[in-house]
């Protein structure tokens, strides 16, 4: 008996496997909205795609962090993402002080802020036994206040070459999107191929059973919360460099966005089952739906209503249950 026999009898028809993937719906929706937007006279499909990739990558990176947190099971969520983004961006840009030479240390500052925020979140959750939703929300007031205190309402500019990097691209793909794709690939490998990925999923399905199976539960949860904060910090760093500076409400829309891309992407909100490709599909879709409704000239009210309805529709389609091999 070899593993070959096991694995060949294991894999069913590949076409059917693809159809059962819950991330399919996010990409389908993204493609449809893309087509609908491109059909409008005067719009340039190429630049629309480029813009979509750019803006989607910010949502995708915070979404990856949030997805891993949500995978840990009911009650696990990171609401400190916007504040962490703001704090990391503010401190990093202030540290770099527009000097090109300090870009790399600046990045490390951002990541360090992320690690610190993740640590605080986890200490509140594990040691003080505060539910994650409350812990991360209250911690985010702390981070936001720190950001306010340190930047005093000024808009801090990024170094020139960093701004160029963040707005530039290579091989027709924006640099920020490349970063997002690399991170997504890493997350996929982690979840699908590594031992830690199995542990994350096991904890999300049944915490007690995972513990009784010898999973180092605390270590995994620690890593996931820190990872989410680091993803947020990195997004804050990139977004601030991209948009010409850090400001205090730069993270606001990413609170909901990070959760929306997880859900639309086909990850189970109940935990245990996550879906990396779906994050990107959903992030593209979330940008494209807004630009589609914009280019049809709809007012802000209608736009919000339609966005809500479309999200409900996609989630309904995507949430049909599938099993993970």
């Amino acid at each position: 008996m070899t593993d070959k026999t096991v694995l060949t009898q294991a894999r069913p028809n590949p076409a059917r496997t693809v159809l059962q993937k819950p991330w399919l719906w996010a990409y389908l929706a993204a493609t449809l909205t893309f087509a609908a937007t491109s059909m409008i006279a005067g719009s340039d499909a190429g630049s629309l795609f480029y813009a979509a990739l750019t803006f989607a990558s910010f949502s995708a990176i915070v979404g990856i962090g949030q997805m891993l947190v949500i995978t840990l099971g009911p009650g696990n969520i990171d609401l400190s993402i916007p504040a962490t983004m703001t704090l990391a961006a503010t401190l990093a840009l202030k540290f770099m002080d527009t000097q090109t030479a300090l870009i790399l240390p600046g990045l490390l500052v951002a990541i360090g802020v992320g690690i610190g925020c993740g640590l605080v979140n986890f200490i509140l959750i594990l040691l003080l036994r505060i539910p994650p939703i409350i812990a991360t929300l209250s911690a985010s007031f702390l981070y936001q206040s720190l950001a306010i205190w340190s930047n005093r309402g000024l808009r801090i500019k990024p170094p020139e070459s960093l701004a160029e990097f963040a707005t530039g691209g290579a091989l027709g793909i924006p640099n920020v999107a490349l970063a997002g794709i690399i991170l997504a690939t890493g997350a996929w490998v982690l979840l699908e191929r590594s031992i830690a990925g199995r542990w994350i999923s096991a904890i999300g399905q049944n915490l007690r059973a995972a513990r009784l199976s010898g999973v180092p539960v605390n270590a995994v949860r620690f890593g996931i919360y820190v990872n989410s904060a680091v993803c947020a910090a990195l997004t804050g760093f990139l977004l601030a460099s991209f948009s010409g500076g850090a400001n205090l409400n730069m993270g606001t829309e990413y609170m909901l966005m990070s959760i929306a891309v997880v859900v639309i992407g086909g990850s189970s909100i109940g935990g245990g089952n996550s879906n990396v490709p779906g994050i990107w599909g959903a992030a593209l879709f979330m940008f494209l739906i807004v630009s589609m409704l914009n280019s049809y000239g709809l007012g802000a009210g209608i736009r919000l209503i339609l966005t809500g309805l479309v999200i409900v529709g996609v989630v309904t389609l995507a949430s049909r249950k599938g099993y993970d091999a």
Binding site: Q205, N206, R208, A209, S268, G272, N273, Y323, D324
Partner: peptide, 9 residues
């Protein structure tokens, strides 16, 4: 309660 991971193979 203590054993099965219901989503898994």
């Amino acid at each position: 309660r203590d054993g099965v991971m219901p989503l898994w193979s």
